[in-house]
């Protein structure tokens, strides 16, 4: 197995800075970008092993979404683990990515989007309101500092990932199972938090108004998003179904669901 060089890791850092979200799409979000970002490492590790490369490509094209600054930690750890274990256990990689992306997104968005933006841009805006364009320098300077933090994150992630993989060497199966448990818990939690859709239907019966959403919520909150996910999951298990076809199914479903009020004349 090849070793990653410092240059590979720096390349991944630069790619991560710019390209994690170029290919952002509704289906796998940062999935396409993730594969592009980590590609220098994949090339180093699997260039001479076509089967491993195929597995790696498929694994790294999977669903991924997190806060950009925090993504450096995950990608770093991924590199550290793959350097040790290769693609012998793709489920462990998926579990790690999925398990970490949720919590990191929460922390990262709060720190790097909400808090950071509120501070830096409100100061800059107040300066601009008084007619000074000088405040525009502030986001640039603060942003440069963030880039440095992201560089550090890449290395911290890489070192921790290597450590994790070394400690668990020979016990990867347990790690995989642990990662799967973490991953599946987060996947379950993703459904109510990522799919913010409700039917928004009210049914008028004489003087009584029935709020369909309230009724469904009493059965189970986020029942509709769960149903849509389970429906998609079930469809994906069908022989003739692939993700391209599923997208059209879901867009068609969206067209119907988005117009329920018109359909029922409410």
């Amino acid at each position: 197995m090849n070793k990653l060089t410092d240059k590979d890791i720096k390349k991944v850092y630069w790619r991560n800075l710019f390209g994690l979200q170029w290919g952002w799409n509704y289906e796998r979000m940062q999935g396409l970008g993730y594969s592009w970002v980590i590609m220098p490492a994949l090339k180093r590790l699997y260039k001479d092993d076509k089967e491993q490369m195929k597995t790696a490509l498929k694994t790294q094209l999977g669903f991924f979404n997190t806060s950009q600054p925090m993504s450096h930690l995950i990608i770093g750890a991924d590199m550290g683990i793959e350097e040790k274990t290769g693609m012998s256990d793709p489920e462990a990689i998926v579990g790690l990515k999925t398990g970490l992306m949720g919590p990191f997104a929460g922390v990262g968005d709060t720190i790097f989007l909400a808090i950071y933006r509120a501070i830096v841009f409100s100061i800059a805006s107040y300066m601009a309101l008084s007619g000074s364009a000088l405040g525009l320098l502030l986001p640039i300077i603060a942003g440069a500092a963030i880039l440095w933090v992201r560089y550090k994150f890449t290395w911290i992630g890489y070192q921790q990932g290597t450590k994790l993989a070394t400690e668990f060497a020979g016990r990867m199966k347990i790690l995989t199972e642990g990662a799967s448990i973490l991953g599946l818990t987060v996947v379950g939690a993703l459904i109510p938090s990522v799919i913010n859709y409700s039917l928004d239907l009210k049914y008028q019966m004489g003087k009584v108004t029935l709020n369909i959403d309230d009724m469904l919520n009493q059965i189970l909150p986020s029942l509709v998003p769960l149903a849509i996910v389970m429906f998609s999951y079930w469809l994906l298990g069908k022989k003739k179904m692939n993700s391209t076809r599923l997208i059209f199914v879901l867009i068609a479903l969206g067209m119907v669901l988005g117009n329920l009020k018109r359909i029922f004349g409410m």
Binding site: E27, R28, F63, T98, S180, V229, S232, L246, L250, L253
Partner: peptide
Amino acid sequence: WFMDGLKTAGLILPAMGIAILMRYLPI
């Protein structure tokens, strides 16, 4: 209606990414 449909499709499309993930993990 097209705008509304598009908006709703945008809301429910992440279901697909999650479903693919579920196919990948030992659910």
